[in-house]
Design a protein around this nucleic acid. Structure first.
Length: 432
RNA sequence: GUGACGGUAGCUCAAUGGCAGAGCCCCGGAUUGUGGUUCCGGCGGUUGGGGGUUCGAGUCCCCUCCGUCACCCCA
């Protein structure tokens, strides 16, 4: 232990963690590929004004969560707090709107938000995200939800619920907000104190209150879905029909509100079945107004982000194991000075033909080295002592069967077979 | 940012205000150059950090850091 540790809300990802990480990331890449999404990676740094414009002046991200600073040259920069803004920026910067539309992009990147850390809620976390830019077709929404549905299934997760809502658009949302606010104001006296406070700050938030006292009022509140304008309603019904055609279950959740200003039409969130505030494992929505906000031609788009740390938590919660990593093929044990140099020679020769080898270091007893071979999970131990050195041979021991044989150094590579499958045992060869 | 609860060995946890311990891990040994099980031994701690009360503090008090839960918000 030194006086230094990871900053609050950040973690080291240690070797033992990587079975989960590799599995999630590999699965993400594979599934994204199945749907024709191609990878993009944007800078960790971004202009502060990009996020102010994209996510909205009044959002929590902009108000209090960005790691923003002015650099030595006077530029106002921030660590990326979310994925969409940068990707949409890249789409226009590199004129991807001249490609066949929609352009479908995915990313696996680190996000930074200065929040109070909790389980599943870090200041630096990773998201797998997709963005489909350039089409307003509700079929794009449906396909993206199908992608997520398949992704979570491929991870082995179960019991996730898809919450679905429409946020309307510039034509219909203001009228709804007005109606909701008016309703809540009339019933203010029946609301819990906390919700009266929410009402003044962000009336939409009152809808997903946990206060028992407010439930009756909230139950009678007007629903956004009743206020959708005709295009919004058509889009909404098309998405629902599309999901039903694919037998993807969802729950209509008029209380589902997302915190970023750019959302329009479809919004969604996948919730893990366990209790707790961090049960949202992925979410997103359509952002047809975002491009204009950034000063680009009007361009529809939709995207999601899914938190890798939360996915891994959910996997562990549900006892889902990632595939075990490939086992070490050979552990090289040696006794004596001459044997040590022979061990180095053999190890290098084996690695040259693709065999994973761990060589013992220092001069430990053969017994200790055999223990190490065992706990390293090796298929074979290669033993080199005085006898072997004097005859130019090595002893190859199959650790599962205990069978062993001595063979010329030059024949080892052929005997151990460098592939990821368990190797053949030695019992077919004669051994002592 | 606010409130509540927690922090003892690498890990999981014990210890009435009175000698800081166990299990696991790691290292070594149980007759010659051979692992897993077993047995024995060893390493390992300024009890998160700082101050205070006390003859004496892991234990009580204050500050601080970190974690967890809730608010908030979300992935």
């Amino acid at each position: 232990m030194t006086e230094f540790a990871t900053p609050r809300g950040t973690v080291d990802i240690l070797p033992d963690d990587w079975a989960h990480w590799d599995f999630v990331v590999d699965t993400a890449r594979r599934i994204a590929g199945l749907y024709g999404y191609r990878r993009i990676e944007t800078p960790t740094l971004g202009d502060v004004s990009l996020y102010v414009r994209a996510t909205g002046e009044a959002t929590d991200i902009v108000q209090k969560e960005m790691y923003a600073f002015r650099d030595q040259g006077g530029d106002d920069l921030t660590l990326r707090p979310e994925g969409t803004a940068h990707v949409v920026r890249a789409y226009f910067q590199h004129v991807l709107n001249r490609l066949p539309q929609p352009v479908k992009l995915y990313y696996i990147e680190r996000m930074y938000r200065r929040e109070a850390p909790q389980r599943g809620r870090l200041r630096e976390h990773h998201q797998f995200g997709c963005e489909a830019i350039g089409s307003a077709d509700p079929a794009v929404d449906v396909e993206m939800l199908a992608l997520l549905h398949q992704f979570y299934g491929a991870l082995g997760l179960s019991g996730l619920t898809l919450h679905l809502n429409s946020m309307g658009d510039g034509a219909c949302r203001p009228a709804y907000l007005q109606a909701l606010t008016a309703y809540l104001q009339v019933h203010q006296a029946e609301l819990a104190a906390l919700d009266r406070e929410r009402l003044s700050r962000n009336p939409l938030r009152v809808l997903d209150t946990k206060e028992a006292r407010s439930q009756a009022v909230v139950a009678g509140a007007p629903s956004i879905l009743d206020y959708l304008c005709i295009p919004c309603r058509e889009h909404w019904h098309a998405v629902r029909a599309g999901l039903e055609a694919l037998s993807i279950a969802y729950e209509v959740d008029p209380a589902l509100v997302r915190g970023l200003d750019y959302y329009t039409h479809t919004v969604f969130e996948f919730q893990a079945p366990y209790e707790g505030a961090q049960s949202a494992v992925g979410g997103g929505g359509r952002y047809d107004g975002l491009a204009e906000t950034l000063g680009a031609p009007p361009t529809p788009g939709i995207g999601f982000g899914s938190g890798i740390e939360r996915l891994i938590l959910t996997m562990k919660e549900q006892g889902v194991m990632p595939p075990p990593p490939a086992r070490l093929r050979v552990y090289v044990a040696h006794v004596g000075q001459d044997a040590a140099s022979a061990a180095g020679r053999v190890s290098t020769a084996l690695r040259a033909v693709g065999v994973a080898v761990i060589m013992s270091f220092g001069s430990r007893s053969l017994k200790a080295q055999m223990k190490a071979a065992n706990s390293a999970g090796a298929y074979y131990a290669l033993i080199i002592g005085e006898d072997e050195v004097s005859t130019g041979t090595v002893t190859l021991r199959d650790l599962a069967s205990g069978q062993q044989m001595t063979l010329p150094e030059s024949e080892v590579a052929a005997a151990v077979v460098p592939w990821d499958t368990p190797p053949p045992g030695l019992e077919t060869r004669d051994s002592k």
